[in-house]
Write a protein that binds this DNA or RNA. Structure first.
Lengths: 138, 138
DNA sequence: CTTAAAACCTAGTAAACCGATAGGATTATA
DNA sequence: TATAATCCTATCGGTTTACTAGGTTTTAAG
């Protein structure tokens, strides 16, 4: 299940991407428009800034803006930062690999092979979609 | 992330499927062989029985056995029972649909469309794989 | 220079969920 | 009758989630 954090984060990025001018967008504006608790959203936007998706400007007239072009931002990258691994099981994760304690050998594990397929399918979808694609979805 | 419950459940089903004879398999045997806490496993097997995947026999020489043939058991069904929805967001779930509170309209939601694609990709993989397929994975 | 508006930061917290564990009740076989 | 198995209920510590509170700092405008 996708956490609210990730969901809100994606919505916020999409909202910012939809503004053609590059003026900073305030958290309060996104919060109202997307029905997200402002304080919670602030922490998410902060995280997105620290991980290099957003820039920010403090003070009056400040806000958040995209650092890269929307079509350069793959959804895999966004989800990995906000949610963590895309794989459903750590032993199959490319970026967050962890060995299972119970499995003596991954190659004979019935779950492993299945989850590799699921991971690849998801990775395929999320890698093909950019922020541009999802922001302007009708 | 897949819960341990689901992971253990799949492993247990695969273990049972691998036995050619249809004699009941004991929880203790599976627990030892697959390194799963026995009590925890018991509760999972019970759930799999109640949801129609397994039959059971009590008393000496008892245990659990498959009710259907392994190639008739789709992994979608197993995961839905043990884990719940396959979709990453309730508003996109076929079997566990729930409306989002924050979204005024799903059709204009940037997350929605993306998650439909992810769901379909996962559904595709999990629907094509049966217990037979994963049990006898090299 | 003051005020207001914004991001930034730290901490805490209620509720839910997870992965068990405990302790037995029930049932069937030998 | 003893034993081996499933079945059932309850509990529990730990972690995560989704916030909330309460401020500090920076900046622009008046």
């Amino acid at each position: 299940m996708l956490s609210k954090k990730t969901k809100y984060g994606i919505k916020a990025l999409a909202y910012i991407a939809r503004k053609k001018d590059r003026k900073p967008v305030q958290a309060s504006e996104i919060s109202e428009s997307e029905n997200i608790s402002q304080k919670f959203l602030e922490s998410i936007l902060l995280e997105l800034r620290k991980s290099g998706f957003l820039g920010s400007k403090k003070g009056k007239g400040g806000g958040y803006y995209l650092i890269k072009e929307p079509d350069e931002i793959k959804m895999t990258a966004v989800i990995r930062v906000l949610e963590g691994p895309i794989a459903m099981v750590p032993c199959v994760s490319l970026n967050y690999y962890e060995k299972c304690e119970d499995c003596p050998d991954e190659h004979t594990c019935s779950v492993h092979k299945l989850m590799i397929q699921v991971r690849d399918a998801s990775l395929n979808v999320l890698g093909e979609n950019t922020l541009e694609d999802i922001a302007f979805t009708q």
